[in-house]
Design a protein around this nucleic acid. Sequence first.
DNA 1: ACCTGAACACCGTTCAAGT
DNA 2: ACCTGAACACCGTTCAAGT
Lengths: 275, 275
Amino acid sequence: MTTSREKTVRTAKKAVNVKDTAAAKTSTRRSLVGNSAVPVPRARAAKGAAPGAALTKERIVTAAIEQIDRNGLMGFSLRDVARSLGVYPAAVYWHVATRDDLLASVVEATMADVAPETGKLPWQDWFRELFSRCREVMRRHPNVAQLVGGQLVANASLSPGMIDRILTVLIAAGCQEARIVEMYNVVIATMVGFSTLEFASSPTDDPGTWAAQLQEKAHAIRALEYPTLARHLPAMANRAFIVRWQNGTEAPMDSSFTAYVEVAIAGMEQVLARQ
Amino acid sequence: MTTSREKTVRTAKKAVNVKDTAAAKTSTRRSLVGNSAVPVPRARAAKGAAPGAALTKERIVTAAIEQIDRNGLMGFSLRDVARSLGVYPAAVYWHVATRDDLLASVVEATMADVAPETGKLPWQDWFRELFSRCREVMRRHPNVAQLVGGQLVANASLSPGMIDRILTVLIAAGCQEARIVEMYNVVIATMVGFSTLEFASSPTDDPGTWAAQLQEKAHAIRALEYPTLARHLPAMANRAFIVRWQNGTEAPMDSSFTAYVEVAIAGMEQVLARQ
DNA sequence: ACCTGAACACCGTTCAAGT
DNA sequence: ACCTGAACACCGTTCAAGT
């Protein structure tokens, strides 16, 4: 019982908070009479699929993904998930152990079936396909993408099938048994590395002023101090990491992604040949 | 005024919550008499540097880094930072705009001076050095590492010097001007990609039972269904992404990291030569 | 077995008021 | 200019009690 005190991550509420003008707009399902903030689950399923459907982990995960897609990782709360399913928060706890447990399940559901079938493509093309499909999934659920990295410590639920296939293809590519763990790690890191950055969400949901701010800062860069940067800044604006104000959903980084993949494939060819 | 409703990310409280046995232990600075939860800032600086020092953004950032290092990203709260500085939460808001603003500053402070001097090393070695130094910083502040990816959308404060140097070295490496943005993105993604995964924190702070759980799941993997995985599982245990129960601070992935770097360098050599 | 209803101990953020 | 003190509207999680 180490009692290591854990707490919370909160982010960006930006609450208008002027005596509830916002809350009144959004929480349509709140009791109109009672001033106490009771959830009022009313008749099952506010907008979920089947109205009388039983509450299952699967339905919870689906609702959670919808929530995250719509409101972002920041806008995600167990209470809202419960609300959208028309149940009390505590009901969710019968099916999931904790908030993190739910998020792990979300990642699992999202990442299922990224690995293509084996034995049909040359290994180079197989990896190209793997990386593309992973990116595609992340592009469709950009707010989930941010989670993926975090869940990659130990998540045995994350399809053993995928791991098995990656190892199989690596061996087919001529990888030594002694170096297979290293190469597997290289593959995983390559698979999620670029895309998690590409789809990292903007810190604010006010892209207008943000773009202006950044452009102002860009102008302030002394051309004498940073000549190379100053020269390439126009080409980089909103197209390069750090120097952009939109993420990959609005400003995709296609050519950079393919460059990244080609570097990885070419590098793997070299390293595999060398050993 | 789109009024897009934002909320919060909370994580894993695991609150003991049995009538405050935990709280009594940790919050030593709480008023012993008054039952109301007043912060009792008392005489400046609970444990910060100079006792009478003025509250500056710099001191706040330093305190925040300490907090994050000790309690993790999950255990981070503005209120605790304020507490450790002996001030009221609202006082912090005079110096930082928001919680995310503070976190961005934390990343900035952590990542300052990762880029080595230019013109002293062959470009391959320069990039090796850059990647290693970035990893080293992340290893020292693993909980900050998780943040880095998220802050990479647009953070103009993130040292223009670094960007300038990367571009300079790329040109020295013979990169075409037309492809420099792509290659820059490849470099950034490579720089943070592996390490953010390597130092992603474990979902629980109870590694004992976690390891047991995973090992149990590993045993359950049908050798007939996933033969390649089953064969390599012993070699992968706690040394490969997904199949590990400790992160890079306790179980470093040195050889995989160097493999990753060598793949990247070799790949860049190929791609730069091809163009 | 599964869910309600209410509580507990936290949050981030705002805002008047003090100095 | 900088901070206090208190409030507001949220959280995740627990726990008895209902069915």
